[in-house]
Simulated assay, not measured.
Amino acid sequence: MPIDVHALLAAPPVRTDVVWDDRDVRLYHLALGAGVPETDPDELRYVYERHPRGLKVLPLFGVVAAGVGFQVFDRPGVDIDLARVLHGGQEVTVHRPLPPAAKATAVTRVTDVHDKGMAAVIVQESALLDETGEPLLTQRNHVFVRGEGGFGGDRGPSGRMPDPDGEPERVFELPTLPQQALLYRLTGDWNPLHADPDAARAAGYDRPVLHGLCTFGAVVKAVTDRFLGGDTSAIAGCRTRFAGVFLPGETLRISVWTDPDPATRGYRLRATAAERGDAPVLTDAALTVR
């Protein structure tokens, strides 16, 4: 079996040195679609290093900066074709706002391998630590591997959240660029599924699809701008389940509810593909605030 569950769970944590500067931050934001319109001072705070109010850093940049999204495939006990891999979900806890430049360490381990029958879900956790060893953020990503279930393991939690009550507080649309996946690849995710038409067809798609983290990052930015006045430091965490394919150039339709639970202060989110009958893209999504 390509996944040796015992070897994967027994593998020691991997420590990775991480360095970024404002150029990396600006490229990440541009890959999400920031900078439109190009003269808007609020947009320039994401992409202009000399902005008088300083350069913003969206917390999901820390996931990219750590470069550990699919590090699981370098672990003992894993031999998987990337064409069968999907990013199933992402959770991020923000301990402190990310600086525009830093030296850090990512400490990554596999915490669970769930058996979903027709697929396996590998849960990978990574803590991003600053130079003093203090945590900046903790992320958990769920790697969905088609055809690798049925090994007799636990199914694990469903990860579903209760549906929000009532109509959304706000619904708005967010266009994306046809070349958005090609731009986002420059942040470090080189999976050919997002660039090569042949690779995409081999995986069962008509054409290359947009990275789930790009879609999620664009949604988090849009909600931050509209509900938090662009204050990225107010974000305490975010999560989503990647429920469906989104194609570069399509329009995201984003629905937002204020979370009524004081224990999870923030917003519930849902994103759909507007041109395809509101096909689900992001579900079970939330953004929590300080």
Rank of each mutant, 00 (worst) to 15 (best):
V143N: 06
Q180D: 14
V143H: 09
Q179C: 15
P164L: 02
E167L: 04
G147H: 13
L183M: 15
G150T: 09
D189E: 09
P168V: 02
L177F: 15
F144L: 10
G150K: 11
R155H: 03
L183C: 14
E148F: 07
M161C: 13
L183D: 10
L174A: 06
V143A: 08
P178Y: 13
P178F: 12
F151N: 11
H194Q: 11
F172K: 06
G188A: 07
L186N: 09
D189P: 09
P178K: 12
D154H: 05
Y184R: 04
R155M: 00
D154W: 02
M161W: 12
R185K: 10
M161S: 14
W190N: 13
L174P: 04
R160P: 07
N191G: 06
G149K: 00
L174E: 12
D154C: 05
R170G: 13
L177N: 15
R155T: 01
F151P: 11
G150L: 10
G153P: 00
R155A: 01
L186M: 15
P168N: 09
R185N: 13
N191W: 04
G156L: 00
V171I: 08
P192H: 04
F172G: 07
L183I: 13
R185H: 08
G149A: 04
H194I: 06
R155F: 00
T187N: 10
G188D: 08
G166S: 03
A181Q: 06
F172W: 13
F151H: 11
V171E: 05
W190P: 14
D189L: 08
G150P: 11
G156I: 00
F172M: 05
G159T: 00
F172I: 04
D154P: 06
G153L: 00
F144S: 02
R146Y: 11
E167V: 01
D154R: 02
L193D: 09
G149P: 02
L186V: 04
G153I: 00
E169R: 10
G156Y: 00
E167C: 04
L177I: 14
Q180R: 11
L186T: 07
P157I: 01
P168C: 07
W190Q: 13
D189R: 05
D165W: 00
G166A: 01
V143E: 07
V145G: 03
R170V: 12
F144V: 03
D154M: 03
R185L: 09
R170W: 15
L193K: 08
H194W: 11
G166T: 02
F172E: 06
P164Y: 02
A181P: 07
P162I: 08
L177A: 15
G152A: 08
G153E: 00
P157H: 05
L174G: 06
D165L: 04
E173A: 10
F151M: 11
T176Q: 06
R155N: 01
V145A: 04
E169M: 12
P162L: 08
N191F: 04
P168H: 05
G149L: 03
G153A: 00
L183A: 12
R146L: 13
W190T: 14
L183R: 14
F151Q: 12
G147L: 10
P175A: 03
T176R: 03
R170S: 15
M161D: 15
L193I: 14
D163V: 00
